[in-house]
Design a protein around this nucleic acid. Structure first.
Length: 197
DNA sequence: ACACGGATACTA
DNA sequence: AGTATCCGTGTC
């Protein structure tokens, strides 16, 4: 099976493009790994849900650091959330990793999560960081300089599904959440289709 | 439906 | 220093 390693050029594109293209890629983090099955995009400009909209330090972060830098922060005082900085020419922002399908180190994930069920291990942005052992110690680090960590594409493009982002109150209308349509490992069931008029 | 939780960044 | 903010999870 061919396996292509993702390099920095991947992230030299807009967050919407990267968020879609990361689906189906394998994220390896030390002794654990998972297929990315769900992502969300956040834009530097025009997106009120992005930290860049209300935090000067996040705008500085985007300006000063290279594409592929990890942006990790604590949410609700409990969960670390993993984001990648992406920089297209004039469209910059972040991709939030929201769910993985576990493929390696599953027993270690179970131990860290104190859970047995495989589908529960990484089916949420806070769950997957706990399963992979990700904390703020990698915040601001260049993904391509972290030992034992890599992104690879080792399967054909999955069938995409699109929906609104989850858990936000600002700019809720943007359909910037992407997931693998038939995956059993996403964080949130697909919204019911709108009833016929 | 609701409690839990704390680092961060911004104000003063 | 003090406080408002927050892109969730698990259990009720």
């Amino acid at each position: 099976m061919t396996s292509e390693t993702i390099t920095r050029e991947f992230f030299e594109r807009p967050p919407l493009v990267c968020a879609k293209e990361m689906l189906g890629c394998q994220l390896t983090w030390g002794d654990t790994a998972g297929i990315i099955v769900e992502t969300e995009a956040y834009a530097e400009h025009g997106d009120e849900a992005s930290h860049a909209f209300f935090r000067p330090t996040t705008r500085t972060f985007i300006k000063d650091l290279p594409p592929g830098t990890l942006y990790i922060y604590l949410n609700y005082g409990v969960h670390w959330l993993l984001n990648f900085l992406t920089k297209g020419d004039d469209l910059r922002g972040f991709v939030l990793i929201r769910a993985l399908q576990p493929v390696a180190g599953v027993d270690l994930m179970r131990k860290r999560r104190r859970l047995e069920g495989e589908k529960m291990l990484c089916s949420g942005p806070g769950k997957l960081t706990q399963a992979l052992g990700i904390t703020a110690q990698w915040h601001g680090k260049d993904f391509f300089s972290v030992p034992g960590v890599r992104l690879t594409r080792n399967r054909k493009r999955p069938r995409l599904a699109i929906d609104r982002r989850i858990g936000i109150t600002k700019s809720p209308e943007f359909e910037w959440r992407f997931f693998i349509a038939d995956s059993e490992y996403i964080s949130f069931k697909k919204r019911k289709p709108a009833p016929d008029p």
